[in-house]
């Protein structure tokens, strides 16, 4: 008799339920679905715009339906979650160091938020709000 290493089965479906950190990871990954869906809405909007004023008006009206508003709230929440989780890991992916002193993670994250605000501000300015 001798060796017979035992391999424990891993569930292909429910593995991510076994650990809170895996659930958080899946939530982060799942958030992209709503962001993708929202991009889809924007593309539809562009198409409707190219089809003339009536089509565009109908599109705007659809956006005001309760279902649409609910979807947008969801998408906004997930977009925020998506943004904050990714911004929070940026110091890992892009560490900066001056001499021997590493730039604190908070500063790198802060710079991303700052950039976000500036870009948003610029867009709002360009569209004339």
């Amino acid at each position: 008799m001798s060796r017979r290493p035992y391999i424990r089965p891993v569930s292909k479906v429910s593995w991510w339920l076994s650990q809170p950190r895996y659930i958080r990871y899946m939530a982060r990954e799942a958030s992209c679905i709503f962001i993708g869906a929202y991009s889809g809405v924007l593309v539809v909007g562009l198409i409707r715009l190219s089809q003339g004023a009536a089509a565009w008006g109908a599109f705007l009206e659809t956006l005001q339906s309760p279902v649409s508003i609910a979807f947008h709230l969801f998408a906004l929440a997930f977009a925020l979650y998506h943004t904050t989780t990714w911004f929070n890991v940026t110091p890992k992916a892009m560490p900066l160091q001056f001499g021997q002193t590493p730039v604190p993670g908070g500063a790198i994250i802060g710079a991303h938020y700052l950039g976000w605000i500036l870009v948003s501000g610029l867009i709002l300015f360009l569209v004339g709000v």
Partner: peptide, 16 residues
């Protein structure tokens, strides 16, 4: 996923 860095006993941070 970042789990590697969370469990590392010496703060190596492989995910980074």
């Amino acid at each position: 996923v970042g789990a590697c860095s969370e469990v590392c006993p010496h703060g190596v941070d492989p995910a980074a």
